[in-house]
Simulated assay, not measured.
Amino acid sequence: MCKHILNVQASIRAPCCKQWFDCSDCHAEATDHPLRKTTEMIFGCKKCKKVFRKDMANFEEEDEYCPHCDNKFIVEAKTPQMALAVEGHDERMGERFEKDMRLKEDHVKSVFDADTDISHLMG
């Protein structure tokens, strides 16, 4: 499983070392040599597990699909994102966060406030 691209649809056989990788970054991390460039690529479909070749010099739109199962293996890459921002406004919080802050600013009392009289609740 590739840690660089989350939605990899096909593995690539590196022409230099004949090993299988999900992306060029995986190759760079696992080997001590640069990835050799070639026009003929060998792919392994992750859906049907079959291998096929593509000539990248004459690559067309219909070549974006596995010839065995029609799985589209050329897709926009989804890369891992940080779960939380370190600095700045977090868009995910939205209005809920601002609403909570207003409640704190209004000093809404609850039974957990130290100066709230709860003796009538203790029966």
Rank of each mutant, 00 (worst) to 15 (best):
E61I: 08
K3I: 12
E29H: 09
A14L: 07
G94L: 03
D100L: 14
L103Q: 13
A10P: 02
E87A: 15
C17W: 06
V8C: 09
N58H: 09
C48A: 03
G44Q: 13
S11R: 15
A10K: 09
C16W: 12
G94Q: 05
A114D: 02
P67K: 02
V75N: 09
L6K: 06
V111N: 10
K46W: 00
D117I: 02
E29P: 04
H89D: 14
D22N: 13
M41C: 04
E98F: 14
E105F: 05
K99N: 14
I42E: 05
M56F: 11
K109M: 04
R13P: 11
M93Q: 10
E62N: 13
E60V: 09
G88I: 03
K54C: 08
R96K: 15
T39Q: 14
K72E: 09
K50L: 03
D90K: 06
F59L: 01
L121T: 08
D113C: 08
M93C: 11
R53D: 03
D32R: 13
L121I: 07
E76T: 06
M41D: 03
G44Y: 12
E105V: 01
H33D: 12
D106C: 07
A14D: 07
T39P: 06
H89E: 15
I42K: 05
F97P: 07
Q19L: 11
R92Y: 06
E62L: 13
H27D: 02
D115K: 02
I5G: 01
K37T: 14
H107S: 12
K109Y: 07
H27Q: 00
C17I: 09
S110I: 05
M93L: 13
D115L: 01
F21N: 00
S11Q: 15
V8L: 00
R102C: 03
